[in-house]
Design a protein around this nucleic acid. Structure first.
Lengths: 121, 121
DNA sequence: TATATCGGTATACTCTTGTATAGTAACTAA
DNA sequence: TTAGTTACTATACAAGAGTATACCGATATA
């Protein structure tokens, strides 16, 4: 079965549809995962770099969310044997391809904002 | 400025990009908004119909989330002057167009699942 | 010697989300 | 008369998400 046909079939089939949605939701839930991924879209970052780039995040939450993202194969963590240790975070291929989801979200978000302002204004 | 050019510009501009993402996140956050919208994709529904179709939801949460969705112009609520009152919920144009976001989420979710299984298996 | 950086962890708290259970007024069918 | 439907609301509670603050050992810098 071709990819396109399979996708069409899945969109009809509520079970797999819901499963895939659930996978995606797991990646973006919470307040901090999208900001972290957004920051990593521009290249590898170290812990403190992320902490500085994401205003308001505490080390506790950054650590927790990075672990989540690593578990879900969105982020890769690499430790370098320097003194003191260097730890680098980067997006996996899945992480990088998540940009397509972000772009559609942005597109919808903008259209939605326009429609709402047209009604109010 | 054309739509396409404007979108390209926004994708470069972190401020508006983040704003639009935020709009979209507001629509889907929490456990129940996507199930509700999913149910309404197939047409107007009444309160009790939604309650029956979404397993596990309590009337409290259904009421709360419907209010949220109404506030954000995703769902339209119509009251009919019958006895007892009939209340119908349906998606607004924005709500209907949200399907494009869902479809991309499904596409990414499936690809991601495949990639992860390939590594593990 | 004092301070700062690195990549975090520990503890305690609040705040939001969600659950459980019961109840409401008005009406209908058995 | 009793039970059920409609569209919810009220109260109380549990659990999870997020915040605030402090701390760790090792190393580098002033």
């Amino acid at each position: 079965m071709s990819e396109v046909l399979e996708l069409t079939r899945v969109k009809e089939c509520s079970g797999e549809y819901v499963l895939a949605i659930h996978d995606t939701m797991n990646v973006i839930n919470g307040k901090w995962k999208l900001p972290i991924m957004g920051s990593l879209l521009y290249g590898k970052k170290r812990f403190k770099e992320l902490e500085r780039e994401i205003p308001g995040i505490t080390p506790r939450m950054l650590s927790k969310q990075l672990k989540d993202l690593e578990l879900n194969s969105i982020v890769k963590r690499t430790v370098y044997n320097t003194t003191p240790v260097t730890v680098e975070y980067e997006l996996t291929p899945s992480g990088k391809e998540f940009r397509s989801v972000l772009d559609v979200m942005v597109e919808w978000g903008m259209q939605h904002r326009k429609r709402v302002l047209k009604i109010i204004g």
